[in-house]
Each structure stands twice: as structure tokens, then as C-alpha cells.
Amino acid sequence: MSPEQCRAARAWLNWSQEELAAKANVSSSTLRDFEARRRIPIANNRAAIQGVLEEAGIEFLFMEGEPLGLCWRSTRAKKPNNVEVTKRRRVRAGQLSKS
């Protein structure tokens, strides 16, 4: 998961950095620094952040090991109550989708 994918996933879920950090049980500074590309969290923290986002219905996309974007998991995945999904969207790392 790249910092851009993390920010995009958090935006889709309408979560603040503090909310995601609390859900992943990592410090706010760890998440803030990761999203700003100031440092890479230790493996446990990075896995915890990604795991929380995946549990919320986010799927991270990669091509040949490089981050490509993200999408909602299949409709079978449980979506959070505060998120309404009208169609499947993909966002490339570093870009925002207006569709």
C-alpha cells in the first residue's frame, strides 16, 4: 500500500487521520508521516493500517508489484454504514476520481 492509496482509501471512507490511526491502533504521527511520505511505518503498523482499510471494503490494486490504485471489494463485502456506493470506481495512486 502506498501513501497515496492510503489517503485515497481514507477519503473514500470519510475517515480522518485520527480515526484511521485509532482503528489501526497506531499513533497519529505514524499515519501522518506515512501519508506525507516522511517515513515508512514498521511492518506491523503498515499491515494494521492496510488491514483496517481492507476490512472496511477497500481493495488495493497493484500491477507488477507497483501500486496502481484502489477499488471497492465485491458487493459481498460488508461496507461501512456511513458509505454509500453507487458504482465501482478506481482511483490511480496520486489522482482523485470525480466519477
Rank of each mutant, 00 (worst) to 15 (best):
M1W: 07
M1N: 09
M1F: 11
S2I: 06
P3I: 00
P3W: 03
E4C: 01
Q5R: 05
C6K: 05
R7M: 12
R7S: 13
A8Y: 01
R10V: 06
L13N: 06
N14E: 11
N14T: 09
W15Q: 05
W15T: 03
S16W: 05
S16N: 05
Q17K: 14
E19F: 02
L20P: 05
A21R: 02
K23I: 10
A24D: 04
A24V: 08
A24T: 09
V26E: 06
V26T: 07
V26P: 07
V26R: 03
S27M: 01
S29C: 00
T30C: 08
T30L: 01
L31G: 01
R32F: 07
D33S: 10
R39G: 01
R39V: 00
I40Y: 06
I40P: 00
I40S: 09
P41Q: 01
I42P: 01
N45M: 01
N45H: 11
N45I: 00
R46Y: 07
R46G: 11
A48T: 00
I49D: 02
G51C: 01
V52R: 14
L53R: 06
E54Y: 04
G57E: 06
G57Y: 04
I58Q: 03
E59G: 05
F60Q: 08
F60W: 08
L61V: 14
F62V: 09
M63D: 12
M63N: 10
M63C: 03
M63I: 13
M63E: 15
E64H: 14
G65V: 08
G65E: 10
E66W: 03
E66L: 13
W72K: 02
S74D: 15
A77L: 05
A77H: 14
A77C: 11
K79F: 08
N81S: 15
N82T: 06
N82G: 06
V83T: 07
V83Q: 03
V85T: 13
T86F: 14
T86M: 07
K87L: 10
R88I: 12
R89W: 09
R89V: 15
R89F: 10
V91T: 11
V91M: 15
R92W: 08
Q95N: 09
Q95C: 10
S97L: 13
K98V: 13
K98Y: 11
S99G: 12
S99V: 15
